[in-house]
Each structure stands twice: as structure tokens, then as C-alpha cells.
Amino acid sequence: MRNDYIGTSIDGDARAACPCRSHQPCNTCQGRINANCGCNNRPTCNHGCGKPVDRPCDNDCTCQQRPHDDCTCNNDRPQPRDNNYPCHGRTPAMVYAQHHDLDSIYCAEKALLRGTLFGCLDKPMCNERCNDGACTSQCQVDKFALWELRLYLNTHPNDQKALALLRKLTEQMEQDCGCACYSDCNRWSWPDGPWPWEYQHCCGKEA
């Protein structure tokens, strides 16, 4: 794998306008300087080397006056400057992932109604009406809880508590769902209705 840095950095800390409004030497202004600075003086490194700074340094150098690359001041810099990694030390933007565990899980029935096993991920809309509870079978309830746990385990493969719950839910599901058999009565019955989009009224009554 290559180690060359070939990307771009995300630097939200763009150069600010130089806050000094007078023709003072730029080495007294605290902000970063840019070409639009009204000072006519060229900034100098004030750590004693006195060398002029030709252009603003745009790296996080700890030398207060942000010396140019060839500034010969010998101040110790905690972070060695490395021109191969110009963004060394900077934090790029990142997506934040709130990590969670199994501490606030719902029972399987509530999980199916709410759409998640995890209380911390249950984020209803404002003014969401409480649903009365769709009519669901125990098999459907078990399968959903198992599925939701499976997604969690894909990103938390070593969570022992989750693995134990998986074993328990699997047993439960095998009991409640049984085994689908489509060849009773000497006839292949898989295509028989109702199909999932042809609902029946709650609790098995005909639509």
C-alpha cells in the first residue's frame, strides 16, 4: 500500500484578514496575515533571526510569527515540519458516529412497533401519534428483532451480550415460526394466497 499522501486536507480555519488596521509591522498582529493586509511592512520572524517572511506560512508552526520555510530561527518546534505531509497534525472533518450498546433495548414486540430494537435510535417526528399497534404475528416479531440484532452485529462483531441475545432470539424464532411446508395434501401450495400485499384483517379474519 502506498504511503504517499495524495489527498487534500479539509482546513476550515481559512486565513483571516489581518486585524491590524494601521501600518504597524505585521509581526505584531496576532492573526494570520494575508496578502490583503494593509501593512506595508513585510512581516519578520520576531524570534530573533530577523529574517523577512516572504509569504505567510499556512501551517501550524509553533513559532509565533509563522516563519517561512527557510527561516533560520532555531526555535524548537514540537512538531517537526515535514514538507511531505503538509497537513500533518491537522484534523480533517469526520462523520461522528454515536456509539451505542444493548443497554436500552426494547422487548421484541415494542421493537417491531417502533421500528428499532434500540431505544436510543427511536427518534419519532414531533407530534407523532402513538400507533395502536398493527396486528403482527409472534413469528414476525421474532424475525424483526433477530434482523435488527444482525445489523448491529455487522458493526459490533465481538459484542458478547449481543451474541448471547442472538442465540436466545434464534431459539425463540424457531419455536414460533416453525417450518414452512408447501407440500401438504399432495399438492404444491407455495403460490397459494394470500400474498403479502393482499392483507387480511387483524387476527386472521378475511379482508
Binding site: L112, C135, K143, W147, W190, W195, P196, Y199
Partner: peptide, 11 residues
């Protein structure tokens, strides 16, 4: 394919 919806649709 499992012949059941993940959540019932009864409109």
C-alpha cells in the same frame, strides 16, 4: 424470498 412483509401493510 420470504413470503411475509417485514411490517404489515393494511390500508
Amino acid at each position: 424470498y420470504e413470503k411475509e412483509l417485514q411490517y404489515p401493510v393494511r390500508i
